[in-house]
Simulated assay, not measured.
Amino acid sequence: MPSSSRRPSPSSSTPPGVDGPPEEEAWLSTPDLAARWKLPPKTIASWASSGAGPRFARLGRHRRYRLSDIRTWEFQQLEKTGPHSPTAAVSVRHDDETWLTSVELAARLQISARTLDSWATTGTGPRHARLGRHRRYRLADIRTWESQRLDATVTGHPTR
């Protein structure tokens, strides 16, 4: 016999045939944002307290970050890296929004992290964003940079 105090399952709270909110309207918590950028949650909280990070909304005692605001802030950080950066891809696939640390990118390229840091300083490496004191590389920009390097090598005019 079913109990009258039984709660509906989460899947039954959404009417059939109705999707969730559009991706741009999704909200991320501080731990979600920290995982996206591979930073400690305390860094995100510190930025929020000082007004240095992306825009957020206070929902009770919780901070929530709208995905569209995060993407805007990320793009602004990419633009700050300087004129040597390649142009941003206009259309970015969902999996290209992954951010890599310097160590992860160095492992992907099979180079030392010091070489990657040197490239970032001289502007010869892939486009990066400074998130506080942390350097992060977006997968879309890495793929663009790799493609440019491959194209230049194939045509016989290697780029720096």
Rank of each mutant, 00 (worst) to 15 (best):
D19W: 02
G51L: 03
G123P: 05
S102A: 15
G123E: 04
A120K: 02
L100F: 06
P8C: 10
W119F: 10
W73S: 02
R36F: 02
Y137Q: 05
Q76W: 01
S9R: 15
V90E: 15
S112T: 15
R114I: 12
G82N: 06
L116Y: 02
L116T: 03
R93N: 12
P10N: 12
T43W: 04
E97L: 07
W37A: 09
S4T: 10
P54E: 00
I142E: 01
T98D: 08
T72L: 09
T101K: 09
G132E: 03
T122H: 14
E146W: 01
D96M: 06
H134Q: 14
L105E: 05
A35P: 02
H157T: 10
R135M: 11
G20L: 12
R143A: 04
Q77C: 12
G123S: 03
T144G: 01
L150S: 11
D151I: 11
G82S: 06
H62N: 12
T98M: 09
R58P: 06
A140L: 03
R135F: 07
T115D: 12
V92H: 03
L100N: 01
R36T: 00
T153E: 09
A140H: 00
H157K: 09
G82C: 05
R143W: 02
S5M: 09
A26V: 07
V18T: 14
E74F: 03
H84F: 06
A120P: 03
L28S: 05
E79F: 00
A140K: 01
G123D: 02
T144C: 03
W145A: 05
R143C: 01
E74L: 04
S91D: 15
P40H: 15
L150K: 12
W145S: 04
A107S: 14
L100T: 04
R63Y: 07
P41K: 07
G51N: 07
T30I: 12
A113I: 10
A52M: 07
G60I: 06
A48Q: 01
K80C: 03
S12I: 07
P21L: 13
R130H: 12
R114T: 14
A26D: 10
K42D: 14
T159K: 06
R55H: 08
T155V: 13
P40L: 10
R64S: 01
P83M: 05
G51S: 08
E23L: 13
K38M: 05
P8V: 11
R71F: 10
W47H: 08
S118A: 15
D95Q: 09
E146K: 05
R63N: 09
E146I: 07
P22D: 14
P158V: 03
R93Y: 07
